[in-house]
């Protein structure tokens, strides 16, 4: 464990909690892409199947359970409890254009042709594009609530910090994973436009307009 990975995990946890609390407290999921949240639930489910087969550490197990629990709770709030506030018209990204290519790629490019490894690879590739429906929805509505921008900032920051974690691990532990690094770079690059707007306009905390 290193400082980049720990702060990355905490940033990720903060994003997940911020979103869940925002929806729960405001009793509304307006402006939130349910499709992205479903993709994140799939990412965690396919990545954390090893919860059943291997124990790495208490921290690792606890965080995985929290991530999966919050992801499904968020999906439940959006599609069940506060379904009336779900903005389906603007959440129109065709996720099949993400899932199918990602599924194909994970079968073609992976470290080991075993079910668990292919599912893990699928989750890595899927996570790198899972935010697209959310960014697409914001570009369609032209604005996002301030709390949603903080959610996106923490979410984007987490994988950027993981990039530094991989540099750290390569330097100190001597290994790296090209699949995780390439997907992590793609994932972080997708947030660049948002990061620029968040930083340049964030200070005035007015609704975020593209």
């Amino acid at each position: 464990m290193n400082v980049f990975r720990l702060t990355g995990d905490l940033s990720h946890l903060a994003a997940i909690i911020i979103l869940l609390l925002k929806i729960w407290k405001s009793r509304s999921c307006a402006g939130i892409s349910g499709k992205s949240q479903i993709l994140f639930a799939i990412v965690f489910t396919t990545r954390y199947l090893d919860l059943l087969t291997s124990f790495i550490s208490l921290y690792n197990t606890c965080m995985k359970v929290i991530y999966i629990g919050c992801a499904y709770a968020t999906v439940y709030l959006i599609y069940a409890k506060f379904r009336a506030t779900y903005d389906g018209n603007h959440d129109s990204f065709r996720v099949e254009f993400l899932v199918v290519p990602v599924g194909g790629l994970s079968v073609l490019i992976n470290h080991d042709f075993s079910p668990l490894e292919i599912l893990w690879t699928f989750s890595i590739y899927l996570e790198s594009v899972a935010i697209l429906p959310q960014l697409f929805m914001i570009s369609k509505t032209g604005e996002a609530e301030t709390i949603t921008t903080h959610y996106l900032f923490c979410l984007g920051l987490y994988r950027a910090l993981y990039l530094f974690n991989w540099i750290w691990r390569f330097y100190f532990e001597g290994f790296f994973d090209m699949i995780a690094i390439v997907a992590g770079v793609v994932q972080t690059v997708l947030y660049c436009d948002f990061f620029y707007l968040y930083v340049t306009k964030g200070w005035f905390s007015r609704p975020y307009r593209l």
Binding site: D50, I56, H111, F175, A180
Partner: peptide, 10 residues
């Protein structure tokens, strides 16, 4: 092939 070395990460 062996599995990804980053399996200990979240």
């Amino acid at each position: 092939d062996t599995e990804s070395p980053m399996k200990d990460e979240l």
